[in-house]
Amino acid sequence: MPSTEALPLFPLHTVLLPGAPLGLRVFERRYLDLVAECGRQGRSFGVCMILEGEESGAPATPAAFGVEALIEDFGSEPGGVLTLAVRGARRFRVSRTSVRDNGLLVGQVRWRDQRQEPGSGARLLPEHAVLGTLLGELLQKVGGLHDAPNLRLLEDADWVGWRLAEILPITEEQRLALLQEDDPHRRLQHLLVWMDEE
């Protein structure tokens, strides 16, 4: 069984997905300390969906699955609020948590994914080809960070699944269910079923 690694956690009422951007406003001391530590050590932190509790105040109860957040940019707002632009990377599972003196949650995590280039994973199965086509059409409409992806990405089961999970109007609980699923083809099947139910 692979060993665990300590990862500071930032619980939120949202699910960060691999490859997805997320904007954060940081003002609590524990999270300002976390960002400073990440900057000094060149490290990342983890984002987990909150199951019980709130984003500020007492430490919340996080979901067992989360995603590594890589800091891409930062800024500030009046009143000492730090703004962060992060992007989801590897998925992880938390085996246990501890709380530092400043209230920061730290998880002992096992990584579920190895880093790999988008487009280098499993190809879409024929029964999921429609999802690649749908994603291509959606990205042309919404544009932004993923506009005009190359054809190789639209055939990558992981990439298509995560981008659809990011764009489609599904619940945070459904996103969390996808995060717990290791098989990209099963993730796509879940999305197909949910779309049929709408």
Results as ranks from 00 to 15, higher is better:
G161T: 01
H128T: 07
H128P: 08
G161M: 01
D156V: 02
W159T: 00
E155T: 09
G161C: 01
G161I: 06
L145F: 13
L154K: 02
L153T: 04
L134F: 11
D156Y: 06
Q140N: 11
G143Q: 08
T133D: 09
L154E: 02
W162N: 03
L131S: 04
V160M: 02
G136L: 07
H146V: 05
L139T: 03
L153M: 11
H146Q: 06
A129F: 12
L145N: 12
L154C: 02
N150D: 15
G161E: 02
A148T: 07
H128L: 10
H146K: 04
A157P: 01
L138K: 03
D156G: 05
L145V: 13
L131G: 00
L153I: 09
R152K: 15
G132V: 05
Q140C: 13
L138G: 00
L131C: 08
G136C: 10
D147R: 12
L145D: 08
A148W: 07
W162G: 01
G132S: 10
G143A: 14
L135H: 00
L145W: 12
G132F: 07
V160E: 00
W159N: 02
N150I: 11
G132H: 06
L151N: 11
A157D: 00
V160L: 04
D156A: 09
L135A: 02
L151A: 15
K141W: 13
E155R: 01
Q140L: 13
P149W: 06
L153Q: 09
E137S: 08
D156Q: 09
V130N: 13
K141I: 14
Q140H: 13
G143V: 08
A157Q: 01
G161S: 08
L151E: 15
D147P: 08
P149F: 06
H146S: 05
R152Q: 15
R152D: 15
N150E: 15
W162D: 01
A148V: 10
T133F: 11
A148I: 06
L138Q: 00
N150S: 14
V160W: 01
V142D: 08
W162V: 00
L131T: 04
W162C: 04
H146N: 04
L135N: 02
E137C: 09
N150Q: 15
N150T: 09
Q140I: 07
